[in-house]
Amino acid sequence: MSSLSLTTPLALFGMPAKGAPVARTNNVIVGATTTNTAVPDFELTQAAANGDMAAFETLYERHYRRVYSLCLRMLANPTEAEDLTQEVFVQLFRKLGSFRGESQFTTWLHRLTVNQVLMHFRKKGVKLEKTTEEGDELNEIVQVGTDRPNSMPVVDRIALDDAIAQLPPGYRSVFVLHDVEGYEHEEIGKLLGCSVGTSKSQLHKARMKLRGLLTKKS
């Protein structure tokens, strides 16, 4: 039996929890994202592409937390994550005219975000770990056969977030893209320039490393 429990209130995918505070002060949005979903994203992109800043602000309100969370989890650095979120939205404003609505706006925006993060890694010279498709055996992490079935500590999602931040950049990228953002290995392979096998191998290593980190915390 595992004892991992999830205790953080749900605030998933830009949807605020019931009664979550939304405070606005002079064009600044604080707390949960806006619930105004009357106008589709595509219409807002068209209006914003024609210079309508109010439409662009609505797009920002809808997606800024998702973009920031993705940047933060991939970079594990709040300052860099904010800078990159800013860069993503400025890029978005520049590229709005090229969005034709063939794909979902969120998909398009997330791809833009991931590309910005990967470009940032390249600029900084961050090496994403490369492993063989078979992957190395995880001797240092897994203690199989030790007969300690209840080794996992009680962790919440904040602890998991902290553990993700401790992963090496390559493992972290694959884990965030696959397990947090829901990308398929084929897509990850294309984005990171690696094979599907490498992506799978890195994901498994990331999960095992997380388990090790969460176990150590107890």
């Binding site: 039996m1 595992s2 991992l4 999830l6 953080t8 209130p9 749900l10 605030a11 998933l12 995918f13 830009g14 002060t25 064009n27 600044v28 949005i29 604080v30 707390g31 994202t33 602000e57 920002y60 800024y64 937390r65 998702r66 920031y68 969370s69 933060l72 989890r73 709040p78 994550a81 904010e82 979120t85 800013q86 897994v142 203690q143 199989v144 056969g145 030790t146 007969d147 300690r148 079935p149 209840n150 080794s151 996992m152 962790v155 999602r157 904040i158 998991l160 977030d161 993700i164 884990f175 397990d179 947090v180 829901g182 999960r207 095992m208 997380l210 388990r211 969460l214």
Partner: peptide, 30 residues
């Protein structure tokens, strides 16, 4: 049981990853 414990832990990690809370940047970002 030891292998099964690892399976359960990995399941919990993947489930928790799907429900990670969204983080909020500073007010000045916009």
């Amino acid at each position: 049981p030891p292998c099964n414990a690892v399976r359960v832990d990995l399941t919990q990690i993947t489930l928790a990853a799907k429900e990670l809370p969204l983080r909020t940047p500073s007010r000045a970002l916009w």
